[in-house]
Design a protein around this nucleic acid. Structure first.
Length: 292
DNA sequence: CTCGTGGCCTGATCGC
DNA sequence: TGCGATCAGGCCACGA
């Protein structure tokens, strides 16, 4: 459920208290939350203990926190993950999977709780690698090896619009599948895919190769618009002290035009929004505005 | 190589 | 009241 805007809100909220914090101790309550951690690189707890966080980064839905050891703590929220900032002596949260005990130079001792009901998310310690990605001539990027295959997100200044349009227009598969392909464009999940397709008046099952270059650029513009609006709403709604992204209450649901709107009139033409199952997930669209 | 499907996972909800 | 089935969808492994 957390897509780019929600993940960015978490990243930005953690940044001021995480940067400069030393990780004193780590408790893993459920090893399933370490499924993306490669144990051959070493013990998760051992690799983190005693290290200091340098920065807070994000690409698409991956977040990572480079450490003074040269590695990075990688976090993916999956479907239901949260990173909750708590007082050091706070009561444990429900579904607490991993807890970091940290000390920050000015904020003092804190607990950082990785909470994840459905365990689609994860934490890992991974090595950082350098890569060339994005528009030609863009500066080298440093990224965890496990996120190196993830494309830049469309809000990244180095995102290559031309390359995206070319790649989309070579695909025989539906445009929604392409929007959800994190190797092509990152940060978009089911909700904002449906929203962007509605705004661009595109049916999600329309093959990429059947979309004109102009329409592809329009879609990209709508993707950016949807993500930017959600980011602006999310950025104002969270508590600076406690970061809390929750699929139910934290979602920017009051401004949705397609997702979850089945049975309601289309805000543009009044036709009834439909919901169908596509790619094993719900797809919401206006049958009049969005023709296949 | 591209494309499409199944599996992981828990809790809320629904029908009987 | 209880119980099984269904649904939600992030990513990845795998097979065609």
């Amino acid at each position: 459920m957390p897509e780019l805007p929600e993940v960015e809100v978490v990243r930005a909220g953690l940044e001021p208290v995480f940067i400069g914090a030393r990780i004193d101790a780590v408790e893993v309550f459920d090893t399933r939350s370490l499924k993306r951690h490669d144990a051959r690189r070493g013990d998760f707890v051992g690799l983190l203990s005693g290290s200091t966080v340098i920065s807070a980064e994000r690409r698409g839905k991956f977040m990572w926190f480079p450490l003074d050891t040269g590695d990075a703590l990688v976090t993916h929220l999956g479907m239901s993950g949260q990173v909750l900032l708590r007082a050091a002596d706070a009561e444990p949260d429900r579904h607490l999977r991993i807890q970091l005990h940290v000390t920050h130079p000015t904020h003092g001792p804190l607990a950082i709780n990785f909470v994840d009901q459905r365990i689609f998310g994860s934490m890992a310690v991974d090595e950082l690698v350098q890569q060339q990605v994005g528009v030609p001539g863009a500066a080298l990027r440093t990224v965890p090896s496990q996120a190196a295959h993830i494309a830049l997100d469309p809000l990244d200044p180095d995102f290559d619009d031309d390359a995206f349009v070319r790649a989309l227009r070579k695909k025989s598969t539906g445009v929604k599948r392409a929007l959800l392909d994190q190797n092509l464009i990152s940060g978009i999940g089911n909700i904002y895919a449906d929203e962007a397709l509605w705004a661009a008046r595109l049916h999600g099952e329309k093959p990429g190769e059947a979309i004109s270059a102009a329409k592809a650029r329009e879609l990209l513009a709508e993707v950016r618009s949807v993500l930017t609006k959600a980011l602006a709403e999310g950025g104002t709604s969270f508590d600076a002290q406690y970061v809390n992204v929750n699929g139910a209450s934290g979602y920017f649901s009051h401004s949705l035009n397609a997702y979850g709107q089945q049975g309601k009139p289309c805000a543009r033409c009044g036709a009834e929004i439909r919901r169908v199952t596509f790619m094993n997930r719900g797809s919401h669209f206006c049958p009049r505005c969005q023709r296949r």
